[in-house]
Design a protein around this nucleic acid. Sequence first.
DNA 1: TCTCTTAAGATACTGCTAGTAGCTTAAGAG
DNA 2: CTCTTAAGCTACTAGCAGTATCTTAAGAGA
Lengths: 198, 198
Amino acid sequence: MTTRRRGAALEQAILQAAVDELMEVGYRELTMDNVAARAGTAKNVIYRRWPSRAALCIAAYRHMLPTGPDSTPDTGSLRGDALALLTRANDRMASPFGRILRQLLGDIQSDPERMRELRDQVGRAGVSHWLTVMARAASRGEVGQSALTPRVATVAVDLLRNEYALNGATAVSNDVLTEIVDQIFLPLAMQSGSIGHD
Amino acid sequence: MTTRRRGAALEQAILQAAVDELMEVGYRELTMDNVAARAGTAKNVIYRRWPSRAALCIAAYRHMLPTGPDSTPDTGSLRGDALALLTRANDRMASPFGRILRQLLGDIQSDPERMRELRDQVGRAGVSHWLTVMARAASRGEVGQSALTPRVATVAVDLLRNEYALNGATAVSNDVLTEIVDQIFLPLAMQSGSIGHD
DNA sequence: TCTCTTAAGATACTGCTAGTAGCTTAAGAG
DNA sequence: CTCTTAAGCTACTAGCAGTATCTTAAGAGA
């Protein structure tokens, strides 16, 4: 083999190899040797670009998210929109994407730097959808203004994430999704007036 | 050394060594060699009792939880009780106990059997406190009957757990705790009448 | 007290992985 | 054409989970 890749081309090849490996075996089972072999290069070439396995995989994870901005559902009712958004989130969390993300998050808990890096580029992606959906419901008079806080907007996804933290990779059932929407999200969104304690 | 421990005595010594090791270095850094050395025995003796590192550590984790039933707070108001319970949960999650539990949960995601084992012996411990506190508030007329569901009762702790999943080991601030109580838990608990959607 | 079975203890080993070191040689700039 | 940079190769260290084998103490039963 006389051709020898350099610079950006090589970097892309390594990232793609890491992505393929992540999709096939997940983060936990990914080895640097396999990535190197897959990319047709050597391990130390990888280490010249990323300081560790975790760093490479975070970069690869970012690289595998080409998900262009997806649409906000508009079913006509807040309940329909909420279920649509939550179902979509559930599908993502149950997919390889979610599996990889959870393994990654679990492995870098002790590294606040990378933790922030990974969280910021992923965690807050869906917030705007929820705010949009709630704003639309408010304009229909379905929702009280006092409910338009980020905490309320994300409560459903936050609870879904908790389910995965507790149950592992097992996908969350539709019953749980509707329970979250009907018992938690909708009552909060639809409350009117101020939140009074005393 | 002529004395040679057997049976239960040896088992306790190993578990105690694992507990000490967990407290000092956590689950991720715990090695079977170190546990064996600490217990004054050999690795294969451990493997005759537990099939893997994870199994040993789960047993050790159970062994380190002598926490007798703690009291239910009674501050006179639902808000005060909720903040007390949530603060207590936060303290526990920020302690070595919480750190170890998260590492353990993160490592056995792909093993539903052990996942259930670990979750069932820990996760649902606090539910009764919340139900007690809410029942008391209901008898004061503070809370609507429709709110007395497990989902609502655990919502605060579930959201707290989500914070740890997202932020890693960093302790959650009091501001977040009061935000959860005031924006999520109290509005849900204090709602009156039925939860209607259509 | 003697014997025999069981399991503890010691040691060494396999196999795998992250990360490092040092050398050789192709790419590409000037 | 030359010289610097970095790709590629190979071999290495160090650490860990889990296994295998052999020796020897504990303790039960006769």
